[in-house]
Design a protein around this nucleic acid. Structure first.
Length: 396
DNA sequence: ATGTAC
């Protein structure tokens, strides 16, 4: 709808940017997030800010937003450059969630090139690791990151799903993770010199940023391979792998995505919560939405609120065994409350908003079976892993 | 979401 003059041709100093939020009136959006959108819109060089239906306040910049500007602002991407969600088909003979949950490897422990030299997961690393960054390789991280074994449930677009090799009942691994320490270091290096200001040398920032994006994608493959082997399956190529924290040069300007997945024709998994479905969608938003879609359900509560209210509302047991019958592996109780399904918006509302605004078309849902966040404590879940290693199982 | 300082 709004006309976007090519800023490189613009003679006048930047006019105020437009802001568009793609949520229906019944979708509650925190006012702090809208304030952040307006503040971003006032930045030098900003052209258009698009808020997705999962919009919520972030640290400085809104999460669930796509922001187009003639000026490159690293803080609008944040520290987890390259964070994204990938979907890997997986074949398992027997699906007993309790048994499978116990077999997940320790994804807080990085793969070490020497100590883990014979780990078959390394086979997914094609050559040199981006930026030579080995720290944290193969780890999932914290916050909203997870590796989930899920089952394809409702298929809305059978032909589309079939092209992806998916149909009802199929199993997938959904991996949500980013660039771990690498992206954090890239943003910190910038921030120490320039704070929330523009990249002084955009080409230099972009070169580092691109490495973090490649690292994030590689790490999702490594995570899926580690888990696949641990569950007794072969690793597969992802059928979906989209990054929702990055900046791309599009139509000659910098398009910053912060918690916003591409909406340019590719398929995207919009993550639900650890207790509700996720939606695989065909994403096809236009210029008004800055060619982006939502990346998940979106928080409706801050982590602090979720912790405080969750402790009064939920037991640990009901968070570890969800309403859809899935298991959550999370030895960190605080994180378990922060990530409670009730701390997020309803995914159906978010998807409904995407559909209503013609930003995406649902292809299929996935229902969680086991969501892994961080190792369980107080049990001995590693015993099966040790037994497998001793007997040489799960190796190529 | 992160590494690091408290």
């Amino acid at each position: 709808m709004s006309e976007h003059h090519s800023p490189r041709e613009s003679l006048s100093p930047s006019a105020p940017a437009t802001v568009a939020v793609f949520a229906s009136p019944t979708s509650w959006i925190e006012s702090a997030a809208l304030d952040q959108c307006r503040r971003v819109a006032a930045l030098d060089g900003m052209i258009h800010v698009a808020g997705m239906p999962d919009l919520h306040p972030g640290k400085g910049a809104p999460i669930g937003a796509a922001m187009a500007s003639t000026v490159l602002y690293p803080f609008l991407v944040g520290s987890d450059i390259g964070c994204g969600i990938a979907v890997f088909p997986i074949r398992l003979r027997r699906v007993v969630p309790e048994r499978l949950a116990a077999r997940f490897p320790d994804l807080d422990r990085a793969l070490d090139p020497e100590r883990d030299a014979d780990d078959p997961a390394w086979a997914v690393v094609p050559g040199d690791v981006p930026a030579g960054h080995l720290d944290g390789l193969g780890t999932v991280g914290r916050g909203n990151h997870f590796v989930e074994l899920a089952r394809v449930d409702t298929v809305f677009a059978p032909d589309h799903a079939q092209r992806l090799g998916l149909s009802t009942g199929d199993l997938v691994l959904v991996v949500h993770s980013g660039s771990r320490g690498l992206g954090e270091r890239i943003l910190r290096t910038h921030t120490e010199a320039h704070g929330a200001g523009p990249a002084a040398d955009p080409a230099d920032y972009l070169a580092r940023h691109d490495e973090a994006v490649r690292w994030g994608s590689l790490n999702r493959r490594l995570l899926a391979a580690r888990v696949a082997y641990a569950l007794g399956a072969e690793p597969t190529e992802p059928v979906v792998d989209q990054c929702h924290n990055l900046v791309e040069v599009r139509d000659g300007v910098y398009l910053h995505r912060k918690g916003a997945a591409p909406g340019d024709g590719r398929d995207v998994l919009v993550a639900g919560t650890r207790g509700t479905a996720s939606y695989l969608v065909a994403a096809h938003s236009g210029a008004d939405a800055n060619h982006s879609v939502a990346h998940g359900a979106g928080r409706k509560m801050s982590r602090a609120d979720a912790l405080r209210r969750g402790r009064a509302k939920h037991t640990v047991d009901e968070l570890r065994r969800t309403p859809v019958g899935s298991l959550v592996v999370c030895g960190d109780r605080q994180l378990l409350f922060e990530e409670a399904p009730t701390a997020y918006k309803r995914i159906e509302q978010v998807i409904g908003d995407l559909v209503e605004h013609r930003l995406a078309t649902p292809v299929a849902t996935t229902i969680p079976l086991v969501t892994y966040k961080t190792p369980d404590v107080g049990t001995a879940p590693r015993s099966s892993e040790r037994r497998d290693r001793r007997h040489g199982r799960g190796r190529s």
